[in-house]
Design a protein around this nucleic acid. Sequence first.
DNA 1: AGCCAGGCCCAAC
DNA 2: GTTGGGCATGGC
Length: 298
Amino acid sequence: MIITEEKNRVIIEGVKDFHLDHTFDNGQCFRWHREEDGSYTGVAFGRAANIGVHDETLILNNVSRKDCREVWRNYLDLDRDYGTIKEMLSEGDPDMRRAVSYGFGMRILQQDKWETLVSFILSQNNNISRIKKCVEGLCTAHGDSIGEYRGQMRYAFPTAEAIAALNPEDLDICRLGYRAKYIIETAKQVAEDNGRKLESLGRASAEEAYAYLLSLSGVGPKVANCIMLFSMGKYESFPLDVWIKRVMNQVYHIEEGNVKRMQEYAAQHFGGYGGIAQQYLFYYARESSSRGRDSTQC
DNA sequence: AGCCAGGCCCAAC
DNA sequence: GTTGGGCATGGC
């Protein structure tokens, strides 16, 4: 990996297994928007950026070498060897091999814990395009302005303290529905110790992280697993949503609704990378389903 | 128009 | 400890 810096951008050469659509449009994050040239623009950790990829070269716009070192290199998970992981998962599993080859450039982002926590509370019984609107609306209404970028004002994700101080009516414009009260309650719980407990979970055991997350308002097993996977580096976490339950039933022939057996299957067959396996399956299941809808239009 | 969405809460067994 | 109804809202 060769990293060079020039006028307000950083160029990283030699990045394998990275595709923007597979990474930013796979339901793990909600604040990245695809531009006409195929690049993505978004905000993470209070910084706005635009990211493009050509062959094995990443171009990080509006990014300094310092930003790259402190945020983006880790956020984009650039130091992980996905090639080896993909081969491990595909070995002896033709269905998984198909899913992996379909989303070959998917990476698990290492996102901010608080943002991921709130975003996935908002995800429950909701669809991805609307989740994005909920999250962006929340940032616009209650996040700190971080200046204009590419002709648009940008906002950081609101802090736990900021959301804890809100009245339910303050969230009406965000159209969060019944989830609004969950995030205010959870913000109060997290802000109690200034988020120290939540931040510490990256170094805690999966069991401890899971127990804490389940104690928060609006967080159940599925949401807890997403938070652990997408912001805490706990790659064995295996979120079971309606799509994955379908896959586990149709592909691996586990009875619909037998969540315990599905978790056991993942732990046994995907080992420490259950969450990554899950994400390839999720992307494949969802994309092929939406392509099916598209093609029936013609 | 009606079903569904990266489910959780809570009451009733 | 498990099961099922209720839930705000809007995408498709």
